[in-house]
Design a protein around this nucleic acid. Structure first.
Length: 760
DNA sequence: GAGTTTGAAACT
DNA sequence: CAGTTTCAAACTC
């Protein structure tokens, strides 16, 4: 051949030698016909692989998860970040060089797979909706790679294509330990569970969630743990968590998630606002599935640390063994069942289930009204989680919260828990026996309760909501207990409380009324998530309103740096739905697009930008410039896909490294670009970002050629500009705020898919 | 521990 | 829907 003269497709072409080997093959021809790039595929040869240019590979890389390539590295702590990582790990490798590819290939064990995956062209065109697909691939690859670790566990994984990571092994170990330690308790729980079996079905969601860790049928068993027990277990769980958390791998997460979603009942979808929240999507399983991957990264990323939170939400033994309550994080959440237990407990230890039926009977038992409808129970769960988190300050990752505070605190609290658990039981008993309705029953008692409560709160607070309502009778959302859809406990110091089983009817009624008034009233908070969860912050159990976070805060004086701010309290960054002023939420800023100067420019151009808007922008800017990590969660803070949270360094000035870079974390140094933008990275490696402009400002620039940026700007009037609201419609949260986000650039469908749905 | 501050919830 | 009031938690002293 004449190299110089040779026609097309030279670049991708493998060496002639390699080609010669395959060119005759029909397969080769076929492949060739499919894509020029494909040609190199003669995977067998390293040479051919090398032919690929890194640039070509980039797109594909996103798809490839190559944990296997470097299993050890991959399974490092980062694995825990989860999903995003998976994709992340893979892509870089493939992306960068042929080595990556080759490794991918090798790992895959199947040239075919590798070739397919590595095909840049394919990925380039791949729709976001399909991004999840990589998972299956990854799962395959990983599965092979990890088989050693997981052994027969592969069987457990759903057919969906769960990714199995070596990290699973870690989990496994931890699980085993846990399991052994908790097995006894499990039995106990099972017994209790029996009592509530009937109710469980309806409440399965809670179940699933709480048990997500177990990821199996087993999960259904453990939910009934007693609050006290949970408390006592907390320590254990923490320990376990600490052990497992790192190991927590995407595979597990994914697995659990999938299991969750695969639930016979339909699919549960996490709310965007709150990672930890799950919504029932009815039959939209596919949707849910799609969401998972996306969500995980964000969650992980932002919450990375909120071990407890995270743990609760996702911890899953690879083997599907029931983690039992430790899973629940004991304290992490007060589940419906827990509530029931409490109730029953009150009425007489294990015996009476008088009330549990009722409890489930009301809102809890309600089947999802719509696909989007948030299950109340979940809210409860998460809330509890969040609350616990707050006390424990589980979110270690977050800068604001020193790591020391997290686990250590938790542990301490756990130790306390031991003490408290008994107390709790006693208190509960007392409380209920005396019916809080009559607060005056025993003043001294109240005092002691208060003290105890404070102890708990300070220590870990576990599951206690401990309200102190005086005028609301605990029948308004002001009441943390009521907001969490739980009855007040003996630890509460409320007065004139009607939120107890003796007033079930009333409570139920009020709940309904409240819900009718505000469908989100009992919606899960964040979470914390990933609930964000997130995530990081500590969600205080004290937070009365569970739905607040989703709606966003409205802070003015606290700068979102105090617990007054629900977002801060929940350890999550403010989202687009927030209308806060001078937001300095250290967990992440809400605005993605920072542009002070840009603002100016915009102002010039438009000359109409409102002062407020400028302020908002400025705020954003400040934040980003301050070097705070911005969690992109904000972008997805909206119900639909918060999942995609990712930390991003926006400005070059950012001194702090991203907390966790799960999905597509990356630093954007967009020195050239006049605008600084928080970029949302999709979980998938493919960083397609849509610039979203508020008010139609059009000066957003794409950060990189390969990546589009989704930029959000605060709306001038501070009305929430939720860009990414759940387009999927899965989100129960209907946002009423004006949505000013404009997509200046048509891009891939947003991960959430909500972008499309957004009004312009 | 009392008083103040804060922002969500409730109300108008 | 906007403005005001109420409320309870968070915070300060």
């Amino acid at each position: 051949m004449d190299p110089p003269e040779s026609p097309p497709a030279p670049a991708a072409r493998p060496p002639s030698a390699a080609v010669s080997l395959y060119e005759d093959s029909p397969v080769f021809d076929f492949i060739n016909s499919l894509s020029p790039i494909a040609t190199p595929k003669p995977l067998g040869s390293a040479q051919s692989v090398q032919l690929f240019k890194s640039s070509d590979l980039v797109p594909a890389s996103s798809i490839f998860t190559s944990p296997q390539v470097n299993p050890q590295k991959e399974y490092k702590p980062r694995t825990r970040y989860g999903y995003a990582q998976l994709s992340q790990g893979l892509s870089p490798i493939c992306q960068r060089n042929q080595i990556g590819i080759s490794s991918c290939i090798e790992l895959s064990g199947s040239p075919t797979i590798a070739s397919e995956n590595c095909r840049p062209s394919e990925y380039a065109t791949i729709l976001p909706s399909k991004w999840p697909q990589p998972i299956p691939l990854g799962s395959e690859i990983l599965g092979d790679a990890n088989k050693q670790d997981t052994d027969g566990k592969a069987d457990h994984s759903p057919d969906v294509g769960h990714v199995k990571l070596s990290s699973t092994c870690y989990d496994q170990n931890g699980i085993d330990q846990l399991d052994s330690s908790t097995s006894g308790r499990n039995v106990q729980e099972n017994e209790l569970t029996k009592q509530y079996n009937d109710d469980l079905a309806a409440c399965s969601l809670n179940h699933l969630i709480s048990r997500s860790g177990t990821g199996n049928a087993v999960m259904s068993k453990s939910d009934l743990s007693l609050e006290a027990q949970q408390l006592s277990w907390k320590l254990r769980s923490d320990v376990i968590f600490s052990k497992l958390f790192m190991p927590m791998d995407q595979g597990n997460l994914e697995d659990s998630r999938r299991k969750l979603f695969d639930g016979s009942t339909g699919c549960y979808i996490q709310s965007a606002a709150d990672d930890s929240h799950v919504y029932y999507a009815g039959a939209a399983e596919g949707v849910a599935t799609n969401h998972d991957p996306k969500m995980l990264p964000s969650v992980i990323q932002s919450q990375l640390v909120s071990n407890e939170y995270f743990f609760d939400t996702f911890k899953i033994p690879s083997d599907g063994m029931a983690l039992s309550d430790h899973q629940c994080g004991g304290m992490h959440r007060r589940s419906l069942f827990n509530e029931k237990v409490w109730t029953s407990d009150l009425s007489g230890q294990s015996g009476s289930n008088l009330h549990h039926a009722n409890i489930c009977g009301d809102n809890y038992m309600k089947p999802p009204r719509s696909p989007v409808y948030a299950l109340p129970g979940i809210g409860l769960h998460l809330n509890a989680v969040a609350s616990n988190a707050s006390n424990n300050k589980p979110f270690t990752i977050n800068p604001p919260l020193p790591p020391e505070l997290n686990s250590p605190t938790t542990i301490v609290s756990c130790s306390e828990t031991g003490l408290c658990s008994s107390e709790v039981n006693t208190l509960i008993h007392d409380d209920h026996s005396s019916q809080k309705t009559m607060p005056s029953v025993d003043e001294s008692c109240q005092e002691s309760y208060k003290k105890k409560r404070r102890k708990l709160q300070n220590g870990d607070g576990g599951s206690c909501r401990c309200c102190s309502c005086k005028k609301s009778k605990c029948l308004k959302l002001y009441c943390a207990c009521f907001a969490a859809k739980v009855y007040c406990s003996g630890l509460c110091s409320c007065q004139g409380c009607l939120n107890n089983h003796t007033h079930e009817e009333t409570v139920s009624c009020i709940r309904k009324r409240t819900e009718s008034r505000n469908p989100l009233a009992f919606a899960p908070t964040l979470t914390r998530a990933c609930d964000s969860g997130s995530d990081f912050g500590d969600d205080s159990n004290n937070t009365p309103a569970s739905a607040r976070h989703k709606r966003g805060c409205n802070c003015r004086k606290s700068s979102c740096l105090k617990k007054y701010c629900e977002c801060f309290q929940s350890g999550v960054g403010c989202s687009m739905s927030c209308r806060c002023e001078s937001c300095k939420n250290s967990f992440g800023k809400r605005v993605l697009l920072l542009a002070t100067e840009k603002m100016d420019k915009g102002a010039k151009a438009k000359g109409t930008r409102s002062k407020e808007e400028k302020v908002a922008f400025h705020k954003q800017d400040v934040v980003s410039q301050s070097g705070d990590l911005t969690s992109t969660e904000d972008l997805f803070a909206t119900p639909s896909l918060e999942p995609c949270r990712s930390s991003i360094l926006l400005s070059s000035t950012c001194s702090e490294p991203p907390v966790s870079t799960v999905g597509c974390s990356s630093q954007l140094h967009n020195s050239q670009s006049p605008m600084k933008a928080d970029v949302l990275f999709s979980p998938s490696e493919t960083c397609v970002m849509e610039p979203i402009l508020v008010d139609g400002s059009s000066n957003i620039q794409e950060v990189s050629s390969s990546c589009t940026t989704r930029v959000k700007v605060v709306s001038p009037n501070k009305k929430r500009v939720s860009s990414l609201q759940t387009g999927t419609g899965l989100s129960p949260i209907g946002r009423s705020g004006r949505k000013l986000v404009l997509k200046s650039i048509p891009s891939f469908p947003s991960l959430t898919g909500d972008a499309d749905s957004e009004p312009h």
